[in-house]
């Protein structure tokens, strides 16, 4: 089966305990250059979906998983090279400074290092580039991961709750970065913040108990519509 989608997943089921699926019968497709927002109540399966796509979870079934129309495993090196994930909370490589971490990520992706000064300035991170990441606050740690992600510019960028912990200025800058990402790749992100989803996304997926309850595209993406879909779940 060939599709034009960058990522196409059919009938995904994910569980932590067998017999208790967290995600069930989920179909997901992400087009090239598309910004997809995931929204849902706590426990809807947003982070589980992101962890599955990242290759962290392997307790899942799927009818088909296609990347550029070809079957693949979420743990394939080729797929890994094409995507980068920013987790909601990340304390990895705490002994490295941001500069070192960024350099290590670029080296892992076998890409030449790019100038991050614009992003560093945009996220107001200038003072912290030489500080070990274990010394950074949650917000600054998140900024370090986001700067690395946007500097790396992978084909598919996956962000789990990127707004959490960011201050007002950095949040505004993040929205701009997400919105503009369509020029260099696709972006899938989860959020609890309605504004972040409505301001940036080409498509909004509303998750409910591990399945997609609503999808909004283009002009349908309004705070009222999405709020209505979320309220139906209550």
């Amino acid at each position: 089966m060939k599709t034009n989608d960058l990522l196409n997943i059919k009938n995904l089921g994910v569980w932590y305990t067998k017999g208790k699926p967290v995600i069930k019968g989920l179909d997901l497709d992400i087009a090239p250059g598309e910004i997809t927002g995931l929204i849902g109540l706590n426990g809807a399966g947003k982070t589980t979906l992101i962890k599955t796509i990242s290759g962290i979870l392997d307790s899942f079934t799927a009818d088909s998983i296609l990347h550029d129309g070809k079957s693949f495993s979420f743990r394939d090196e080729a797929f890994k090279m094409s995507r980068f994930v920013v987790y909601s909370e990340d304390h990895s490589f705490g002994e490295l400074t941001f500069d070192e971490y960024c350099s290590y990520v670029f080296k892992s992706y076998k890409k030449p290092e790019t100038d991050t000064s614009g992003l560093v300035k945009g996220f107001h991170f200038e003072e912290y580039t030489g500080v070990p990441m274990k010394e950074l606050s949650m917000g600054n740690r998140k900024k370090a991961s986001l700067i690395t992600a946007f500097a790396l510019r992978p084909e598919l960028l996956i962000l789990d709750e990127p707004v959490n912990g960011l201050d007002f200025q950095s949040t505004e800058y993040l929205y701009k970065q997400i919105y503009e990402y369509r020029t260099c790749g696709s972006l899938l992100f989860s959020s609890h913040i309605l504004e972040s989803i409505c301001l940036t996304s080409d498509r909004v997926i509303v998750l409910e108990n591990g399945t997609i309850s609503n999808t909004f595209k283009g002009d349908e993406i309004t705070p009222e519509q999405v709020r209505g879909a979320l309220n139906e779940q209550l």
């Binding site: 890994k80 892992s108 992706y109």
Partner: peptide, 18 residues
């Protein structure tokens, strides 16, 4: 002993050599 780095290493490419 460092679960977050363990996750990062699982997520990043080229980590067998890296």
């Amino acid at each position: 002993s460092d679960p977050d780095t363990k996750t990062a290493v699982r997520t990043l490419p080229s980590q067998a050599s890296g």
